[in-house]
Amino acid sequence: MDLLLWGVMPYVAVTLLIAGLVWRARYDRFGLTTHSSQLHESRLLRVGSPLFHFGMAFVVLGHVVGLLVPDSWTDAVGVSDHAYHLLAVSTGAVAGLAAAVGVGILVYRRLRVPAVRKVTLRSDHVMYAVLLGAMLLGLVATALNSSGVVDYNYREGVSVWFRGLFALQPDYHLMGAAPLAFKLHVVLGFALFALIPFSRLAHIVSAPFKYLFRPYVVYRRRDPRQLANREPKRGWERAS
């Protein structure tokens, strides 16, 4: 069981993520979009969405640091465990709270604004359920831990296991020994990864940073293949 959950599941999720993205890039570029609903409702979105996204950016950053940086490194530069946790919990709390309030507004908007409710996709329900679950369990795990109800140092457990994933040698017993809240959080986290290609979260991978480097006006020639001898493409184009 531990092997399946902590040795196999992460790879399945990542495979789904990659295969899903390749599939969409090849056959369903038309479906790749944010599905912005700002046309229907702007006031709530203008508060909720930036709060959520900027909060989320720091949460993601926090995860990267927390999971990828071994404690031997922070020890080496002379940051005590106590100081580390103080820093992590304080910045994490601010970012996490912003993201939580933001997502609260977004979900409220999804449910209560009729026009937005109407354009909510089926994949949104799944995505929001997993996202809310992951966020909630993450907050619970952190709260339990920092309030001392459970005594668990994830930097010696979850993090070590997580880094093992990259070496293809995850120590799944480590994860098996983690408290339940951490386990569930990890499962939902990977579920979220797997959902990226199959929900509106796909917009994450098309973050348009190249805008900063291209000339303003884009010119293109007519594609000669658009006029004649074009192979019919698979996917949405043949829907008729």
Partner: peptide, 17 residues
């Protein structure tokens, strides 16, 4: 065109021809 210049994805374009 300001629309083309605003598009972060580079999806909008002006045809050369």
């Amino acid at each position: 065109p300001a629309c083309v210049s605003s598009c972060p994805s580079g999806a909008m374009y002006k045809r050369v021809e």
